[in-house]
């Protein structure tokens, strides 16, 4: 009996290693097939009132107003941090144009120049209800963005409901934005 238990003892390292090996293999396989479902990092802003917004509007975009949100009180709005120098921001324009039929989209141009921005809108299209300037990036810092494009969904009461880092494509609209809008 004692002999058998000694054998079992010596098999323990193998057993421990097998468990680790299985975890590694499964982890690698799920990584490979891209099916790993990971909760997106929640924004610390979620559930809080929207931080400060810029006051300088790009002339010719939107009606004459002094701040981005007041005209849309009671309606959800998508705040889209973008820049003319950013390639993914060009890529998301077509999807945003589709989305603009259902949702007001407001652009905040992060560290951008007016002339570049106008050229960008002429060339790639303008899905935005209005475009606002964050020339020195101070507003972006207040919102805690870590790059452009990055989007925030604001509900009718001015509360941040959702943050999405990266370009908005049709899958983001269907899987994330529309469900979030339906919940409001």
């Amino acid at each position: 009996m004692a002999r058998i238990s000694a054998r079992t003892l010596f098999l323990l390292p193998v057993a421990g290693f097998v468990v680790l090996g299985i975890i590694f293999t499964i982890a690698l396989m799920t990584n490979l097939s891209g099916t790993a479902k990971i909760d997106p990092l929640p924004s610390i802003l979620a559930g809080k009132p929207a931080p400060e917004l810029p006051s300088q509007r790009l002339e010719g975009t939107g009606a004459d107003m002094s701040d981005p949100l007041s005209a849309y009180a009671g309606r959800p709005v998508l705040i889209n941090f973008m820049a003319s120098w950013c390639a993914p921001c060009r890529a998301e324009i077509p999807a945003l144009e589709t989305l603009s039929d259902e949702l007001v989209i407001i652009a905040i141009a992060y560290k951008d120049k007016e002339a570049d921005l106008r050229q960008f809108l002429d060339e790639y299209g303008n899905p935005y209800a209005s475009v606002w300037m964050d020339t020195d990036g101070a507003i972006g810092r207040r919102w805690g963005i870590y790059g452009v494009p990055e989007s925030f969904l604001i509900d009718g009461d001015g509360i941040v409901r959702l943050r999405h880092a990266g370009p908005v494509f049709s899958d983001v609209i269907n899987d994330i934005l529309i469900p979030a809008l339906e919940q409001m």
Binding site: P13, V14, G21
Partner: peptide, 25 residues
């Protein structure tokens, strides 16, 4: 690359540990 190195890890650790379970006692 992960798959390749996982294979190395499994063989380089698994075989010696089996050998150990056999010879160790």
């Amino acid at each position: 690359r992960g798959v390749f190195i996982l294979c190395i890890l499994l063989v380089a650790t698994g075989l010696p540990l089996l050998l150990f379970a056999w010879r160790g006692p």
